[in-house]
Design a protein around this nucleic acid. Structure first.
Lengths: 275, 275
DNA sequence: TGCAAAGGGTACGCACAGCGTACACGGAGG
DNA sequence: CCTCCGTGTACGCTGTGCGTACCCTTTGCA
């Protein structure tokens, strides 16, 4: 039995890597094109340290400087590509998401759990949903979204505990913020096999989600459909949308099972022997 | 036989950051869920070094382990969000891209130059374009794409030189691989104000692109429309699509100029980072 | 049954990578 | 004139991060 890799030895943690990401992620809507000094203040690092890190990131192609101001390059977008490339479900799901969008005329998305957040891993957007600017990589709270409810409903108990520990902030007057009620909702999801959440994240934002299962039956993602309350009612969703989602989720699961099992066998490197 | 001579001898370069990214990016289609030893071999680092890096990345939330195999977490997708958050054009362009998609029924995209590649920074996909799996973050070669031609046409001379130095690989029998001819094409683009590229990257892949200019007139991105040759002819594009693109590109430029430093307050504040 | 191969962890001591302090410079604004 | 903002860099020291070496477990095959 593998022990949990814990033991904050400090010896198995590379400070420079943490600092590198700290600087990279310090570029923010609040600080789109910061100066070196601003980054130092923001990250709490010394100016020479930030400078070394910036020059490193620049050499690696992730940031560039124009005058005294620094900015991210499009290369940071490339990092995410490695996720899609290593998680077959993203590519498998895309055509199915388009099918949902075509059949329903609204946006559909695929999301997974990361820590205590929901992260969109694939999305087909038909039109902008209210003020929410949702795209691949967007993090949303678990408790106020249909995808989050689905993912939490089938997650391990410790995961749900962690989510509750993180707190259930209120976004609208309908947000479920009570842990007991939240667990009740998860129970509802498990019984019904889908989740519908209405205006708990933003007023008028209405969405439905169902689990996507892999070959072993494990829930590996949530498939969702989102719209505005003015365009559809909850009853609409239950009657017409949820069946489509369930069908498509099953299709995705089937395609997922049919994946070539990562067939590409690794070539043995002749690096040690003669050739 | 130590293969890689360390060319980064500058005192202002942090080796650990480079190594961190090396390990993170070693996860790809050929190695979706590698073992520690596989990563060590792939990156050329020692096993203890890779282990330290993996444990660090795990603590930061970018990788996770199941048994002896490691994989990326959805959190790597979050990194790209910082690009959109710091580059107003991405958010500004999205509704316009949707307009193009709605008016034309095909996919439209926004891309920028990164080194010698074109990187998609925003995209609205209506349907899958041939075998190309294009999404935000995808890198494509400059010389064989309409967006690349547009961006190169208005780029600095040194940038074009760098692109030519990198070589013009052939993808189809129609790919422009001759530097002289490539420069001619750039000249054509500057004269016409748009680029149309037919089947130079993949047979049957047809696209048109126009420049997007900011308030000062600088070309900051390329706006493109892509389709299959079976569905549209080049004449179709010139007659009906290019005018739409030019109009929309102007709209984007106008919105961009009207972007008052920072006015967008429409982000759900999803907390990330644990400490 | 045993051995090799492939997976993994950990101890340990040394080198130098990376650290921050301190100082210098240039420009803008008072 | 000074101050505040921005930058770069010299430099000595700390201790981070390095790799070697060794050990364990599991698996597969002879």
């Amino acid at each position: 039995m593998n022990a949990i890799p814990d033991q904050r030895n400090g010896r198995d943690f590379i400070q420079s890597i943490e600092r590198g990401f700290a600087v990279l992620l310090a570029f923010d809507a609040d600080l789109p094109t910061p100066t070196l000094a601003e980054l130092a203040k923001r990250t709490g690092l010394s100016r020479p340290a930030v400078r070394r890190i910036l020059l490193t990131l620049q050499k690696l192609g992730y940031v560039s400087s124009r005058g005294p101001r620094w900015s991210l390059t499009p290369r940071v977008l490339t990092i995410g590509q490695h996720y899609a490339a290593t998680h077959g479900i993203v590519e498998v799901a895309r055509p199915h998401l388009m099918r949902v969008a075509e059949r329903t005329g609204e946006s559909s998305s695929l999301a997974q759990l990361d820590g205590t957040d929901v992260v969109y891993v694939a999305r087909v957007h038909v039109r902008r949903v209210l003020s929410l600017n949702v795209d691949v990589g967007t993090r949303l709270p678990v408790h106020a979204t249909s995808m989050g409810r689905v993912l939490a409903a089938y997650a391990e108990a410790t995961t749900v505990d962690r989510i509750l520990d993180a707190g259930l902030p209120r976004f609208t007057e309908w947000t479920v913020t009570d842990p007991i009620e939240f667990r009740d909702r998860l129970h509802d999801v498990r019984r019904a096999g889908y989740a519908i959440v209405d205006s708990e994240l933003e007023d008028g934002f209405l969405s439905a989600a169902v689990p996507v299962r892999d070959a072993t039956g494990d829930v590996v993602a949530a498939l969702a459909y989102s719209t505005a309350r003015g365009r559809h009612s909850i009853e609409d969703l239950e009657r017409t949308v949820v069946p489509v989602l369930l069908e498509v989720a099953a299709d995705i699961g089937r395609d997922l099972a049919a994946l070539p099992e990562r067939s590409r066998r690794l070539r043995v490197d002749a690096r040690d022997g003669f050739f």
